[in-house]
C-alpha cells in the first residue's frame, strides 16, 4: 500500500510541475490549472489510502472546506479576485501552522521516543529528535507569518484597512528583535523536547509568528500589495514544504518547494515590471503613491 501511495505522490508532483509550467503561457494556462487540480486530487486520494484515519472528521472537514472555498470563489466579483487570493493564501498558511501544532501535541502527549517511532512506521524515514522539533518550529513560524501577513494584505487590498503604509520610529529594530526572540523560541523548543519549557516556548512562538506577519506587512503601501501577496504565496509554499519535513512526506516537500521557488521568481518579475527591487518594496515604505495618485 505504501508503494502505491508513493507512486501516486510522484504522479501528482509531475502534474504540479507541468501545471505551473503551462500556467506561464496564455494558450495553455487554463489546461495547466486543470492538470494541477488533478494532481491535487491524486495527492488527497493517495493520503486517504493510509489506514486508521478518523473518517467522520476527514469527510466532514473536507466537505465544509470545499463548500466554503467553492462558494467564496464563485461569488467573488472579478475585481475582488486578488484580495480573495490573499484570503485563501492566509488560510493555507494557518493550515500549515495548525499541522505544526497538531504534530507538536502528538509529540508532547506520547513522548518524543514514541513519536519518532510512529513517524518511522508511517514514512519509513528515521530522523533525530532535534530535526523533528526544528521542522515543527519553523512550520509554525512561517505558517503564522503567512497567515497574518495575508490577512493584512487582504484588508489593505479590499479597502477595509487604509492603504497607507504604517510607519513608526524604531520599526526595523523592533521587527528584528521579535524575529530574534522567535528563533530563540524555536531553540528552546528543541532543547526542551517534550518538557514544560518547550510548551511555553511553542505558545510564545505562535504569538510572535502572528505578530511578525502583521509587522512585516503594515509598512507596505496598498499599491504594492500584489507583490506582497506573491511573496506571501511563496512563503505559504515554504510552510507546506516545512510541514512535509515534519511528517517526512515527499509530495508535501516537493510541491511546497516548487511553489516557494517559483513564487520568489514571480515576485521578482512583478517588481521588475514596476521598475522596483524587492528590497525597495519590502523596506521602502512607499507604494502609497499608487493609491494616492489613482
Amino acid at each position: 500500500m505504501s508503494a502505491l501511495i508513493n507512486l501516486l505522490y510522484i504522479l501528482s508532483s509531475i502534474l504540479f510541475i507541468f501545471g505551473i509550467k503551462k500556467l506561464g503561457s496564455a494558450e495553455t494556462a487554463r489546461r495547466g490549472n486543470a492538470m494541477s487540480s488533478v494532481g491535487m486530487t491524486l495527492a488527497i486520494v493517495a493520503t486517504l489510502l493510509y489506514l486508521g484515519l478518523e473518517w467522520w472528521m476527514v469527510l466532514t472537514g473536507m466537505a465544509i472546506g470545499s463548500a466554503i472555498g467553492y462558494v467564496a470563489a464563485t461569488r467573488v466579483a472579478m475585481t475582488g479576485m486578488p484580495e480573495m487570493v490573499a484570503l485563501f493564501n492566509g488560510f493555507g498558511g494557518l493550515a500549515s501552522l495548525l499541522v505544526g501544532g497538531a504534530e507538536f501535541v502528538k509529540l508532547r502527549v506520547g513522548g518524543i521516543a514514541h513519536y519518532l517511532e510512529a513517524l518511522k512506521a508511517q514514512s519509513g524515514v528515521t530522523v533525530p529528535a532535534w530535526f523533528a522539533l526544528v521542522a515543527i518550529g519553523l512550520t509554525i513560524l512561517v505558517g503564522g507569518i503567512t497567515f497574518t501577513g495575508s490577512m493584512i494584505a487582504y484588508g489593505k487590498l479590499s479597502g477595509k484597512l487604509g492603504g497607507k503604509p504604517t510607519l513608526f520610529p524604531g520599526q526595523k529594530l523592533i521587527n528584528f528583535l521579535i524575529m530574534a526572540i522567535a528563533l530563540i523560541g524555536i531553540a528552546l523548543m528543541v532543547i526542551g523536547g517534550d518538557g514544560p519549557t518547550a510548551l511555553s516556548a511553542g505558545i510564545v512562538l505562535v504569538v510572535l509568528s502572528l505578530m511578525i506577519g502583521v509587522l512585516m506587512t503594515i509598512p507596505i503601501g496598498g499599491g504594492d500589495m500584489p507583490v506582497v501577496i506573491s511573496l506571501l504565496n511563496s512563503l505559504s509554499g515554504v510552510a507546506a514544504a516545512l510541514a512535509g519535513f515534519i511528517i517526512l512526506n515527499n509530495v508535501l516537500v516537493v510541491a511546497g518547494c516548487l511553489v516557494g521557488a517559483s513564487g520568489i521568481i514571480l515576485t521578482v518579475i512583478m517588481c521588475k515590471a514596476m521598475n522596483r527591487t524587492l528590497g525597495n518594496v519590502l523596506f521602502g515604505g512607499f507604494g502609497a503613491s499608487a493609491q494616492a495618485g489613482g
Binding site: N33, M40, T47, M57, N89, A95, I247
Partner: peptide
C-alpha cells in the same frame, strides 16, 4: 494557481487525523 498548489498542506492535515 500556485497558491492553490500550496494547499497541498492538506496532506499533512489529513495525516493528523
Amino acid at each position: 494557481g500556485s497558491n492553490a498548489i500550496s494547499g497541498i498542506t492538506i496532506v499533512g492535515a489529513l495525516l493528523a487525523l
